[in-house]
């Protein structure tokens, strides 16, 4: 098998919580520049898998390799600095800061690294970072809200801002945990367009999503997770026609 363009490799990962086998024998390969969707019924272990990749949870066994670097055992901030950003299921934002500052902070993380004691420099002199953040906010259609407190945004806007916070870092890999949950149909379509635009720039994405409309308009490859195992893997068309997938979804619903 040709593996040279695999950028993320989740290798034989198991995760147990006490007696619960949340992830079993997960082997997942994400190719560079592709959008890889992970779908599955509730409780299938999708978020756990994302948490293992991003360093929030340590796997019980197995490891995650990103572009030749083993991620397992590294801290979340180190993993981010390697070029992996994540949008959370419930937006993780700086609610007490302005929208503009929310987007400037990740840009500074990208430029300055994990720690910099730049306390005698004025924030006003960071014109480059500011312009970059404003440009990003224009991209996601939130430039008019830049002075608002992030905590006062609507739920959909919080998600879009969080996406902007990830995109401004130009990550090599973007992990999206239900990026359109709680959005109106209109906002969902806007987000899909935005994600397609990123794809054309060659960013690799792993996306967890319930909304099949979103999945089939974005994904190049789909992995189906049920009860902690990958039960199917392949192109959207292959997965759509797979009887095991239909069974898992119907089984999950009943």
């Amino acid at each position: 098998m040709e593996k040279s363009n695999v950028v993320l490799h989740v290798a034989d990962v198991h995760k147990r919580f006490g007696g619960l086998h949340a992830l079993a024998d997960i082997d997942l390969q994400v190719e560079e520049g592709k959008t890889h969707a992970i779908i599955g019924p509730n409780g299938a272990g999708k978020s756990t898998l994302l948490n293992v990749i991003i360093g929030k949870l340590a796997p019980t066994s197995g490891q995650v390799v990103f572009d030749g670097t083993v991620l397992t055992g590294r801290k979340p901030y180190q993993i981010n600095q390697l070029g992996i950003a994540r949008v959370f299921q419930t937006p993780e934002i700086f609610a007490d800061l302005s929208v503009l500052h929310n987007v400037m902070i990740p840009a500074l993380a990208k430029r300055d690294g994990m720690f910099k004691l730049n306390m005698l420099r004025s924030l006003d002199s960071e014109t480059g970072i500011r312009a970059e953040a404003e440009h990003m906010l224009e991209d996601v259609g939130m430039i008019t809200r830049r002075e608002m407190l992030a905590g006062s945004l609507s739920r959909g806007d919080k998600r879009r801002m969080e996406l902007a916070m990830c995109l401004i870092q130009h990550p090599r890999l973007l992990l999206l945990d239900e990026p359109t949950a709680g959005m109106s149909r209109h906002d969902t379509n806007t987000t899909i367009e935005l994600l397609k635009k990123i794809k054309s720039r060659g960013m690799t994405k792993v996306i967890i999503e319930h909304d099949m409309h979103v999945v089939f308009s974005l994904a190049d490859k789909i992995s189906v997770l049920a009860q902690g195992r990958i039960i199917a893997d392949g192109s959207p068309d292959e997965v759509r026609g797979n009887p095991k997938v239909q069974e898992a979804y119907l089984g999950g619903a009943h």
Binding site: N80, A95, M104, I105, K116, N118, L120, L123
Partner: peptide
């Protein structure tokens, strides 16, 4: 000066959401 610096903004961000800071690439 500290409050108005990038460093000061990071401190406020830590107060606001430490988890996000870590997933944004900062060692808090």
């Amino acid at each position: 000066r500290i409050a108005g610096s990038p460093f000061g903004m990071m401190l406020k961000a830590i107060k606001s959401n430490q988890t996000r800071m870590q997933f944004t690439g900062f060692n808090t």
